[in-house]
Design a protein around this nucleic acid. Structure first.
Lengths: 201, 201
DNA sequence: CTGGCAGGCTTACAGCGTAAGCTTGGCTTA
DNA sequence: TAAGCCAAGCTTACGCTGTAAGCCTGCCAG
């Protein structure tokens, strides 16, 4: 995990990892079945950093908590995005996660189908947002400004009037942060789900 | 693209691609700068299959159209998911796509910030859903039944009561299709966005 | 007729995951 | 104390990858 955080997932090879540990590549195979096994372990570590809903959380707080912490985890470990994307089989940590999320929704009043809906839409949003955020070609707001003005200079602005406008008057405006879009989307979805509940007319 | 559809992205190597074309691997480099260049071209082809909103679409219809067609494209070309995920730089097709989406929203009455919100949440959902769907370890509903019962048999059911329940009574129920979750989430988000509009009090 | 050049081919290299087998040192047990 | 096992490392080798460098051939313009 330290290696992935430091050097990125694409440069994690058995040889380099061994080198960092002061060991030959093949020695790692005493501890790990193969590279996929190692990557599965990495996912497990990453998923374990996602906070699951507490027993005493209402469904909305519980979902908010896990969504926010998932986003934070993906921001801390960008490699986890590609990893989760590229391999499917849920490990034990994923099972705990699934069960606690569904449980939180069911206790909050959702029927089975409703909980499935809620889970699907929230999960898709959280993960999709993590991907978007990781693919942004900048990290800080100085970088976004620099890159934005450069793009603007090269762009045939008359061909993309709406995009240009948004870049100029929104994304490049002081204080803009893409991260804020996360809370917006999250609350929108949570409010929409709330309306499904019996008793919200 | 044909090769990727047929054999999957992971087995697309320059040598194998050349072989399929009756040509040596290195010959491809006369037409393509390097493999990344080729992959960028693939993305371009894939994105081009996403329907963009029509001029006469209302914002809701426009967004629904592009969301649905994006999902359909990802279903047709599963490799496009990993590809979009792994490389960021938007090409010309992506620019057209961005501009038309933002334009559709703006014409529909969203202010700049609102359009940015809407774009972000919809895009995250659509892409996140595509990833989920691609990672499902089954393709048909017979497969889901077979796999589901197998998982159920192995699972320590008492440890994951909610998950077990959902599997038994929902996912394994006849006629269940994960795909239906897409429209649910999409409409939920669209309805949520509608409420942002002035005049919907 | 000639030059350029597009489109292919050949060779070669470094890096990858990993199969197969070897060495070593410490612990367990008789 | 001796015997045996085994965990943890090392070595070598194989087939795969992307691609740099350079060569050959045939078409087409001047």
């Amino acid at each position: 995990m330290a290696f992935a955080d430091q050097h990125g997932l694409e440069s994690l090879s058995m040889r380099k990892l061994g080198q960092q540990l002061g060991v030959e590549a093949m020695s790692l195979y005493k501890h790990v079945k193969n590279k996929d096994d190692l990557l599965d372990g990495l996912i497990e570590l990453a998923l374990d950093e996602i906070e699951i809903p507490r027993e005493d959380d209402g469904w909305k707080d519980g979902m908010r908590r896990r969504a926010r912490s998932a986003r934070a985890m993906f921001a801390r470990h960008p490699w986890a995005v590609s990893l989760v994307e590229s391999r499917g089989n849920p490990g034990p940590t994923a099972m705990v996660y699934y069960d606690s999320v569904i449980g939180c929704l069911r206790r909050g009043g959702f029927d089975i189908a409703g909980a499935a809906h809620a889970f699907a839409v929230l999960d898709a949003f959280v993960f999709g947002f993590a991907v978007q955020e990781r693919n942004l070609p900048f990290d800080s707001s100085e970088q976004v400004a620099a890159l934005g003005t450069e793009v603007l200079a090269q762009l045939p602005q008359d061909r993309f009037p709406y995009f240009t406008e948004m870049l100029k008057e929104h994304a490049l405006a002081p204080g803009y942060s893409y991260a804020a879009e996360f809370d917006f989307g999250l609350e929108l979805i949570l409010d929409g789900l709330e309306r499904l509940l019996p008793g919200s007319s």
